[in-house]
Design a protein around this nucleic acid. Structure first.
Length: 313
DNA sequence: AAGCGTGGCAACCGCAGGCAT
DNA sequence: GATGCCTGCGGTTGCCACGCT
């Protein structure tokens, strides 16, 4: 059997929250912390359902929320991330400290959509509204530093080779539409020891890619998570191996979406611990799951932290 | 000043995946 | 293994403020 019934919906308030309700919720969470949303309303003396309390807290009352207008920089980040992730507002919000998914979603619908349309860009496809696919890539690529992209047609790669240290919140990569929906299940597994680097770095089949098809590396460093925004979206082109000996790369077939159950990463160099910015030590495998649908800092069942080392089981 | 239209945003709704029983 | 709740997510709704006529 399942659990006992959910919150009493018959005796709950709806609509706008009053100041008193807000204060009750704040006081309760300050005293007891977040979580247990089901029992929270009763315990806090609120005639609301737990879901409503959670939403109110996350979207409006949380102390770490950044209120106020979005900056130009944030606009561009949202546009770039949306071109890669689509309407994955929570993932986009995860890259913008202090912003909520709801806020970004509303902002997208009310401001950015119009902004893109005024640029002649379709906000859904991020292509010029009457242009070619090739022009679309050029138009969406707002960074003048990016180079023309070529990758093997059936391989999507993660190329972490120019990353010198691992951030607390790590890197992710995005493939085509068919893979995006699978991100929640995304895990990193070690590939066979014989990772074929050529698949990841340079292909024999040149192809013009849509933004979502591009191989994307989002590199973050400690400074970024300290509050600044320094998001870099770039293409995973071949880079010299690092002096650390760490050489992450991966590939998977985009042709068989069923076969894609995760992003695979492996070290082509011998395991060699590298200090993370949070003080932990990373061997040659890192779980990126918490970036891809799990709560921040929460590892999935496939990963563990033992003695300060992140491992794939 | 009143009526109307529009935009912004908080909140709700329904669904899916995960997990407890 | 089956059932059903919990949580989180994306889409949608509805209220309110503001500007225009």
């Amino acid at each position: 059997m399942g659990r006992s019934p959910c919150c009493e919906k018959a005796h709950t308030n709806k609509g706008a929250w009053t100041k008193e309700e807000d204060q009750r919720l704040i006081n309760y969470i300050r005293a007891h912390g977040e979580g247990c949303w089901r029992s929270l309303p009763k315990a806090a003396g609120l005639l609301r359902c737990g879901k409503s309390c959670r939403l109110r807290w996350i979207n409006y009352l949380r102390p770490d929320l950044k209120r106020g207008n979005f900056s130009e920089e944030e606009d561009e980040i949202i546009i770039k991330l949306h071109s890669l992730l689509g309407n994955k507002w929570s993932l986009i919000a995860g890259r913008l400290p202090g912003r909520t998914d709801n806020e970004i979603k509303n902002y997208w619908n009310t401001h950015i959509k119009r902004k893109l349309i005024s640029r002649g860009i379709d906000p859904q496809t991020h292509r010029p509204m009457n242009g070619t696919a090739a022009a679309a890539v050029a138009a969406t690529d707002t960074s003048s530093t990016q180079q023309p992209k070529t990758i093997p047609s059936n391989n999507i790669c993660l190329d972490f080779r120019n990353i010198t240290s691992f951030p607390q919140k790590p890197i992710f990569a995005v493939a085509g539409d068919d893979q995006i929906g699978k991100f929640k299940d995304t895990i990193i597994k070690t590939r066979e020891s014989s990772v074929d680097d050529t698949k990841c770095s340079s292909g024999t089949t040149e192809e013009t890619l849509t933004p979502r098809e591009q191989v994307v590396k989002v590199e973050q460093n400690e400074d970024v998570w300290g509050g600044g925004i320094d998001l870099e979206l770039s293409i995973g082109l071949p880079q010299p191996k690092l002096s650390t000996g760490i050489n992450f790369s991966s590939s998977f077939s985009s042709a068989d979406s069923k076969a894609f159950t995760g992003i695979w990463a492996a070290a082509t160099a011998p395991p060699q611990p590298v200090a993370m910015t949070n003080g932990a030590v990373v061997t040659n495998l890192v779980c990126l799951c918490w970036q891809l649908g799990h709560k921040s800092g929460q590892l999935c069942r496939n990963c563990e932290v033992a003695n300060g080392v992140y491992r794939y089981r």
